[in-house]
Amino acid sequence: MAQLELFLQTLISGFLLGGLYALIALGMALIMGVMRVINLAHGDFMMIAMYIAYWLFTFFGIDPYVAVFIAGPALFFFGLAIQKYLLTPVMKVDSILPHNQVILTVGLAMVFSNLATVFFTGDYRSTPVSYASSAWYLTDFWKNSPVELSLSMPWTISFVIAVMITIALWIFLTKTDTGKSIRATAQDLDAALLMGVNVDWVRMVTFGIGLVLVAVAGCLFLPIYYLYPALGKQFTNIGFVIAVIGGMGSTDGAVIGGLILGIFESMTATYIGMGWAPAGRFSIFVAALVFLPGGVASILRKRRLGK
C-alpha cells in the first residue's frame, strides 16, 4: 500500500509540475510557430518576471499570485518592444547565418542574466509566503481512504492558475480574429498576408503573449522555487525539451509535452534520485528525437488530417 501511495503521490506532483512546465512551453511554442525561431532567452524572460514579482513581494507585500497581473503586462510590453526594435530589424538583414534571431536571443539571455547578477547579486532568494507549507490531505475529505495523499497548497494554486491561463489562451486563439490571425500566420505566412494580416504586428503581439505566458509561469513558480539570476538557462532548456517532445511550434503539443516531462521528472526524482531529474530530462529528449521526431504534434496531426 505504501508503494501505491508513493506512486500516486509522485504522479500528482508530476502532474502539478507539468502544468507549470506547459505554460513555459506554450509561450515558446507560440513564438516558434509564428517566427520559426527558438527563443533561447525564454527562461531569462521568466527570470525577469520573477524578480519583478519578488521585489513587489519584498517591498509592497504583494502576493506572487497577484503579481501575475503586474509582471504579465510588463513583460507583454517588453516583448512588443524587443520584437519591434531588435528581432524584426535583425530578421531583415541578409546574412550567411540563416538564424540571426536565434543568435540574438542567446545574446539577450546572456545580457539579462548578467545584468541581474550585477543588480541583484547572485543570491538565492525566495518569497516566504504564509501558505508555503500548507497542504490539503485526502483523509480530511474522505476519512476511510485506503491511501493518504496530500496536495501542497501553493503547488495546487499555481497549477489551477496555469490551467485557467491555458484555457484563456485557447479561447483567444480560436475565437478572436487576432488569435486566428496568429494561427494563420504560423501555418502560412504569405497566405495570411494576402488575407490582410499585418504580419509584423502579429509577430509583435505573439512575442508579447509568449512572454506573458512565461511571466505568469515565473510568478507561479516563485512561491515554490528559488530565484537566482542564472535560473533562466534551466527553464529555457525545459521549454526546449518540451518543444521537442510536443512538436516544434505546436501549442497542443506543448501542453501534452509539458505534462509528460513533469510526470517523467517527478518519477525520476522519486525512484532514481533527486539529482537525476536533469539526466531524465536529457534521456527523454533524446528518446523523443529518435523515436518520435515530429513530437506529439505529429501524432495529433495524423489523427486529425488523416496523413
Binding site: K180, R183, Q187, D188, A192, M195, G196, R301
Partner: peptide, 16 residues
C-alpha cells in the same frame, strides 16, 4: 489554405 484550421475559420480569415 490554412490546413489546420476549420473551413469556417478559413472563411473568417478571408474577412478580417
Amino acid at each position: 489554405l490554412f490546413v489546420e484550421m476549420t473551413i469556417e475559420e478559413n472563411l473568417d480569415m478571408g474577412s478580417l
